[in-house]
Design a protein around this nucleic acid. Structure first.
Lengths: 248, 248
DNA sequence: ATATTTTGTGTACAAAATACACATTGTTTC
DNA sequence: GAAACAATGTGTATTTTGTACACAAAATAT
């Protein structure tokens, strides 16, 4: 458990005069705030994460997450969308805040507190819009060492994703809008890193009743083509309110 | 979905020279960072939250969460422990980060980004150590309007607690170390705001096998006294690693 | 046309959640 | 101290959910 400093003499933020508040807020008690995005993709049946190679020789050209400082007049979430737009060219990505990392020594340039966001992206769409030589998709299992504390941030987001995907239908953001059940299962197996029973998987998703049969089939597969489905977000939004359980 | 600003010309934080980084981190791109604590307690079979009345007349003496600015040389989590220590006199409380609130206009004194922490406290212990006239326990259902965006923060933490308590054994932090099963059930009913079946509740907790029978009984109750139990944290820590399910 | 690969489907079994009733223990009241 | 009261403590039947598992049908490749 952390050591408690400054036990006694600090007044409480919301109990000060407005003037006192303003001077504190504009005073020395400020820190740099950054947003770091863990952007997941799904390609060739593997879960991927988008990383950039650091320019800093000092840091041995390690890979790092995509991040930037939050601007003084910018909403936190807007910072994350700005980073996503810059790097992927897309502005309608799934995005959710995961955790804030605020240890004093986490960044070598000084005090930088970082808010981690998790984003999910359809790799096919992304490919068309972005070209950056230092930007690469990495298999999640091959991510070993990252810049600063980015491995810790990545691990937190990956665990978050594994849990979250079992409670909410995020995974569809990683797939094309039309997908086969095999693709969906491959996705879940990649995220959760375990094999699932095909028949039970299908039974579960059909019983949830959020998949719409598109009446089409896969093309150019070297075997019997599977049916294509899409996820019915509207139906989900309507139904989810009545649920109390943990599963979706 | 938020509007994306600054689409193009911002370089990426982790791709700059160290000097450039340092100047940015120490430069104008800084914000005030605060921690706000949502401190829950359980008393008279009701879930309570600890609030303080704001001194600021301008804000109509509304109640607010307990918070303060994060100091430049202070770990984020240490800030939260400092606030808890100041306000409750205790330094071994359950504490967990929940969410960071970073809208530009959320605080009238300027840009203040706030990290919300949730803490759970045994009200009996607390009573012995703190005396502050502006500090009060409020029934959670009676919390209507709070200072700034604190109601939003409170709501997020309350929902977080309701979900979290079904996956992890946090609730025990709200109870005395020895408690009856009726007390435990009252706690869960108060947090989840619904009635639970007594026999099934007991069955579930006994089957988890983390309750230790203290061989004692309740005192001074106007009816048949129930047995007293404690929660076996060690056993839980050992066992939980092997679990994959969502329930604890 | 034959072999190969993957899709698509149902059932039996096990485990977990739920609904539900009565005897027991201690306290309070008359 | 007898009777009424109030809460504890316990088990079983039912429903629901999860899991394990096999074979026919469709399309492709040779």
């Amino acid at each position: 458990m952390a050591v408690v400093k400054n036990e006694i003499n600090s007044k409480q933020l919301h109990s000060k005069t407005l003037k006192g508040l303003q001077s504190e807020v504009q005073g020395i008690n400020r820190v740099a705030l950054s947003v770091d995005c863990v952007i997941f993709g799904f390609d060739e049946n593997k879960l991927k994460v988008l990383l950039i190679r650091s320019d800093l020789k000092k840091y041995q050209k390690k890979f790092s997450l995509l991040g930037d400082l939050v601007k003084p007049e910018e909403d936190l979430e807007d910072s994350a969308y700005r980073i996503l737009k810059q790097r992927t060219g897309m502005d309608d990505l799934y995005l959710e805040q995961v955790h804030t990392f605020g240890e004093v020594g986490r960044h070598p340039a000084g005090r930088v507190v970082s808010v981690a966001y998790c984003s999910l992206i359809n790799v096919q769409h992304h490919r068309l819009k972005i070209h950056d030589n230092d930007l690469h998709w990495h298999d999640v299992e091959s991510v070993k060492e990252l810049l600063f504390d980015h491995k810790k941030i990545f691990d937190a987001c990956y665990k978050w994703l594994q849990k979250r995907v079992q409670e909410h239908p995020l995974g569809f953001s990683l797939l094309p809008s039309k997908f086969s059940l095999r693709e969906l299962q491959n996705l879940y197996e990649a995220i959760l890193d375990k094999k699932l029973d095909r028949r039970n998987f299908r039974k579960k998703f059909f019983s949830m009743d959020f998949l719409v049969d598109m009446g089409e089939h896969e093309q150019n597969v070297p075997h019997r083509p599977g049916r294509l489905y899409k996820f019915d977000y509207e139906k989900y939004e309507k139904k989810k309110k009545t649920w109390s359980g943990i599963d979706f």
